[in-house]
Design a protein around this nucleic acid. Structure first.
Length: 419
RNA sequence: GGUGGGGUUCCCGAGUGGCUAAAGGGAGCAGACUGUAAAUCUGCCGGCGUAGCCUUCGGAGGUUCGAAUCCUCCCCCCACCA
């Protein structure tokens, strides 16, 4: 244990420790973590806190923000944040939590995603205090000998003992050799940037700990590991992920963020407050209490959640506005404030004749349905209306004479006007 | 390397020459009821201006009037053997 004589230092440590461990699942190894933090404070030497993101999709969602917001807390405490954009690891694909090999991305896709990632990161983090590194920086320099050397640091047995691999083996789903390299690559990132702490979701525990092993093998002081809970997606079952489509993207319009928040199962309300918002400990206690009272409709609290989430990623006041709009559109079944609009000329561009609009085409070509067949199904299911009048005739055609509002399902709108 | 068993639509899984765009379940979408929650019920659930066509049963060829189904080669998974 470090000697910690000054009460000021001790107070600072307690303050930091409290913030850092809040919401975390594991802090490994605990004693070592405390010592390292104390040393950092005493010597005024910030920790290098790392988290990596593979730019496999263009959207950062609330699931990612669980880790990013933890980074932000470290940042606010004066520590150094190092974001790794995994341009090379993305080409391999992290097998964590995967039931099948990820499909490889092209370099162009990766670079495009990496670009949009960065702007999204800085909706939470302070750009000027963040170091962003692409891991291609070191991987593209490695020779085959270097790679083989890296591969000697880990045994097959250790890699295969992971749950993800065990499950895949048992179910007869292929595992490619290159996927075994993922933890090694992630670990080597920690060597390259000399990470002192790495953050990740609990499913990352193996990779994070592998980082320690690799660092030691390369004579770098092993990093500390901090794991955060996995945020459950909108379906209430699976982890939030882009590929499952059960996510709230931080770049989404206010209305979407709010609407999606409203669609989560009630049991997840507290969870979202805790993991995805900056609600204070006192606020969380109040929320928990309110949710346990039978006379409180969880919907009201869910609305607070939606409002909060919108405010985090949109200008102030957007949350309230989104809530009001939601109430207007869904509770009172009125029209939204603003909706996508197409003029006669724009319709003509879509090859729709404003004088004789074939409803099926209008729905499909304006993107309110994926295909004509889909549009037809929606019409015959009674999910389509024009100016509030339900249309059930699949062959319906009409002339665009006045401003008309097309509604498809509960939440898709399109306004079309003659000029 | 050998022998045997497998690979079916988003997922699981039935189907072993035409009746098969392919049973059933799950997921999803829409409708009713609601709080865009849950539960329940109903409909849809490859594409095309709905008419027959086109695409789809690991991949590529072939047999046949006709193939998810038969043959050949290849790829992948599993079991046992080496």
């Amino acid at each position: 244990m470090e000697e910690f004589d000054s009460p000021d230092l001790l107070k600072e440590f307690k303050h930091q420790w409290d913030i850092i461990t809040r919401g975390a699942v594991d802090v490994l190894p605990e004693g070592e973590f405390e010592d390292k933090l104390k040393k950092s404070i005493k010597e005024n030497q910030p920790l290098r806190v790392k988290q990596g993101f593979d730019p496999t999709s263009p959207d950062i969602h609330l699931g990612h923000t669980v880790g990013i917001r933890k980074l932000k807390q470290f940042q606010d405490l004066g520590h150094k944040i190092v974001l790794i954009v995994g341009d090379y690891t993305a080409l391999v694909g992290d097998p964590s939590g995967q039931s099948a090999t990820r499909k490889p991305l092209t370099h162009d896709e990766v670079m495009y995603n990496a670009e949009t990632y960065q702007t999204q990161f800085f909706k939470v983090l302070d750009r000027s205090k963040t170091e962003v590194r692409f891991n291609g920086e070191w991987f593209k320099e490695m020779s085959f000998t270097d790679i083989m050397h890296l591969a000697t640091k880990f045994t097959v047995a250790r890699l295969l003992e992971r749950d993800d691999f065990t499950k895949r083996m048992r179910r007869g789903i292929p595992i490619s050799i290159h996927e075994l390299f993922y933890p090694l690559m992630q670990g080597y990132d920690s060597v390259a940037i000399k990470a002192s702490v790495e953050i990740g979701a609990t499913e990352q525990t193996f990779n994070l700990l592998a980082g320690r092993t690799i660092q030691e093998a390369y004579n770098v002081e092993p990093q500390l590991v901090l794991t955060m809970p996995i945020l459950i997606g909108l379906d209430g079952e699976m982890k939030m992920s882009k590929s499952l489509g059960n996510y709230i993207g931080i770049d989404e319009p206010a209305r979407e963020i709010f609407g999606k928040a409203m669609s989560i199962p009630d049991e997840l309300i507290y969870n979202y407050f805790e993991l995805a918002t900056d609600a204070t400990a006192e606020r969380l206690v109040k929320i928990k209490q309110a949710l346990s009272q039978p006379d409180v409709n969880p919907m009201t609290i869910k609305k607070q959640l939606g409002e909060k989430l919108v405010d985090m990623y949109h200008p102030n006041g957007a949350g309230k506005q989104a809530r009001e709009e939601f109430e207007r559109v869904f509770s009172k079944k009125q029209l939204p404030d603003d909706m996508p609009t197409k003029t006669a000329a724009q319709l003509a561009d879509l090859e729709i004749d404003p004088k004789k609009i074939y409803l099926v085409h209008l729905i499909a070509k304006s993107g309110l349905a994926k295909s004509n067949s889909e549009a037809r199904k929606l019409i015959s299911a009674g999910g389509v209306s024009l100016n509030g009048d339900k249309v059930t005739d699949v062959d319906y055609e009409f002339e665009l004479a006045e401003e008309t509002v097309l509604k498809v399902g509960k939440r898709r709108f399109l306004k079309i006007c003659p000029n």
